[in-house]
Design a protein around this nucleic acid. Sequence first.
DNA 1: TGACTATAGTACGACATCGCACTAACTAAT
DNA 2: ATTAGTTAGTGCGATGTCGTACTATAGTCA
Lengths: 164, 164
Amino acid sequence: MFFRLFNEIGIVEQLSRALLEARLPHGLTRPHFTVCNHLIRVKDGQTPLDLARAFQVPKTTMTHTLSGLEKHGLVELRPNPEDGRSKRVWLTPAGRAFRDKAIADLGPVFDDLAGGVDPGRLQAILPALEELRVFLDAYRSAKTGGPPRFGLAQVGRKRDPPRT
Amino acid sequence: MFFRLFNEIGIVEQLSRALLEARLPHGLTRPHFTVCNHLIRVKDGQTPLDLARAFQVPKTTMTHTLSGLEKHGLVELRPNPEDGRSKRVWLTPAGRAFRDKAIADLGPVFDDLAGGVDPGRLQAILPALEELRVFLDAYRSAKTGGPPRFGLAQVGRKRDPPRT
DNA sequence: TGACTATAGTACGACATCGCACTAACTAAT
DNA sequence: ATTAGTTAGTGCGATGTCGTACTATAGTCA
């Protein structure tokens, strides 16, 4: 049962990602969009590590994603006046426009989706998914070792054995 | 709403993947496991393209996954007597053992999961997920162009513009 | 102040994913 | 049989993801 569940989730993830990226400008991926979206929905000025935590990705992955966004002029990384080690991520006008346009372009897709699948039914699975996500996150932390530890970043993955 | 849904799905996908791969032998990934599992649950002797369709991945990705499985001696690729272009994928005893051991190793995880999240609740979201998956798959085909066309493989993704 | 530890970010390498282009083989129409 | 179009699989290159290791800065404690 769990296998089927995770399998369905994996396939939906692939398909939804392809659906989104087919509608983004060339060179921009779902993470780029989701980060911009997050910076608008929540707030910008967060640190890269904040974002890595929010999306449950290693910080190296977030560095990579942000560098892509910066290269496209969608965000700006400025030093964090409160902490010399870290930076803060700010959206540029282009970044906001990019996000708005992506959402607009997805409108028809969501309309079709709402026509083909009962939105209420999808809405209804959100709490269970969220519960599952929270459990998996906590489970990883629990199994990884001690307390909250740190930001997420590099934990709990498998370790390369020394090359023989 | 759809964003939140796909976001949760994406995160659950990442976390479940990490959870699984942390319990697999080094060098083997979730696709390796899921393919072996599929070959046992459904049947082996399928063609690589059958598998690519089943997992909704491009055929090049399946080639890569199968070559990894073959390198580890978990599957065998033999010519397809009915079609000189294609091959058939057969599990080796090692492949079956690998799948069985992975499932056994995941037992405790699933027990914990069943303890932390109501399994009935997860079970209940399966039909909606499946419906969503079927819709997304059909939608991609519909938008991509005509009829069933081909196997899945390389479609509907964005095209690289000529390098300037 | 100095020493030790913890944290933020990055450079780098390994590898997975996937689009493009190509070959070989099948199919259809004549 | 010839030819054109389609399909199965792969080589290759580009890029996303992530673990390891490193640097710079903070924080803690004496």
